[in-house]
Computed example of a mutant assay.
Amino acid sequence: MEPVTLKFGESSGPNSAAGQALTAYAERVAERTDGKVKIEFFFANSLLESNAIFPALGDGVADIATVAISQSAEQLPVMNWISAGSSTLSPEFPLSQMQALPAETQVFSDNADVTNELDDQNVKMLLAGLSGGFSPAVCSKPVRNLDDAKGVRIRVVGELHAQEARALGMEPVQTSSSEIFEALQRGVIDCATASDGGHNFIALGLLDVAEYYLPLKLSPTGGTSYQMNLDSWTGLPEEAQKILLEELGGYAADRLRGNLEGYGEMVDLIDERGIEWLDASDLNRTLREAQEKNVEEIYADPPNAVSDPDTLINEYEEALATWLETIQDFLTAEPLAADADPETMKEAYRNADESIDFEGLSQELGSYFKDLAG
């Protein structure tokens, strides 16, 4: 084959867990293709902002990109609709982080309605479920209960997070990741979420300006995925296509390990900087009730592009259940209960990267992506 360089638009920075895992992924792809498939990364939205990347991906501005489904809901109504069920991921840490990627990738790869809407946009999905963790927040003011939450301006991602914030009495603000630091520093927002927390809070510099850590459980940003321009995909030889897919298993395990290491680093920085760790138990109970209601209402009103809503819902729920059972074999410690107290939570975060058999998990995910590659 002729050498090719694929342009990859990524929202995270190069030193984030995602950035480091992607760099290692690109090295493996280049090695297996004898240097004929190279990946050039445009980290931290340096190619285009995240809310503009999806339309540009179909037009070929990028070959591969991170796509936040919540920011592309109009073009991807099926994926956006079923992804509303992300709040039904296991609330126990780190199970949701382990569960989301293989489960959502399976559903989106197998369902004809999803494939059709991606084809219409001239893109192919490589993997999904990138942001499987429930989203916590950091704040510049204390938010200990629903009274404190009233009127608090919180940066969110997409309409689902916005609905959940309103259920707490907060005022949702949508802004790109590159603008969060300045917004929190200048008081444009009072709190900021970041998918999975951990490395993302550190990479964005938010612990430099935050005074409080609020362990909310806003829904994972379901459906966040790596997608590829369809022309770029079909232009590759079949063997190169297989390599791109097969190496995603190692990427997924690397990213998970980096994310969990980030939680430990985050706890150390929080303690070092005197950031107060708030108890969000009461807020999360209200949030859970709102999430259950939201999922019920959203699933009762499917978009026209969904040919069989009940079947798609069942596929999503079955994939979550199957992968939850599978991944528990690779836990080496008890998962953190959803209602754990702050001190128990801190201890679990510090030891998170030691709570998983990463070698076994990597082999399991690698086997799945090899099957997906055919």
Rank of each mutant, 00 (worst) to 15 (best):
I270G: 10
L22F: 13
H199V: 09
L6K: 05
E315R: 12
S109A: 15
N45W: 00
S86T: 01
L245P: 00
S109E: 07
S90R: 09
R153T: 01
Q363S: 12
A65F: 07
N294F: 06
Y25T: 01
D231H: 14
V138H: 06
T88I: 05
A240G: 08
L216V: 04
E238A: 15
I270P: 04
L324G: 15
E265F: 05
L218F: 15
V78Y: 14
Q106N: 05
T322G: 08
A62I: 11
E272Y: 04
T193W: 01
N51V: 06
G19P: 10
L184W: 07
G187W: 05
V78T: 11
Q75I: 03
I180M: 12
G374S: 14
E364A: 15
L287R: 11
V4P: 13
P55I: 11
E182G: 10
F201S: 01
R273K: 14
T193N: 09
T33K: 13
V295M: 05
V188K: 11
T23A: 15
Y263Q: 05
Q106V: 02
L245K: 15
D190H: 13
E317W: 02
E296I: 00
E117P: 06
M79K: 07
A280I: 02
D190G: 03
A26W: 12
A300K: 11
L244R: 13
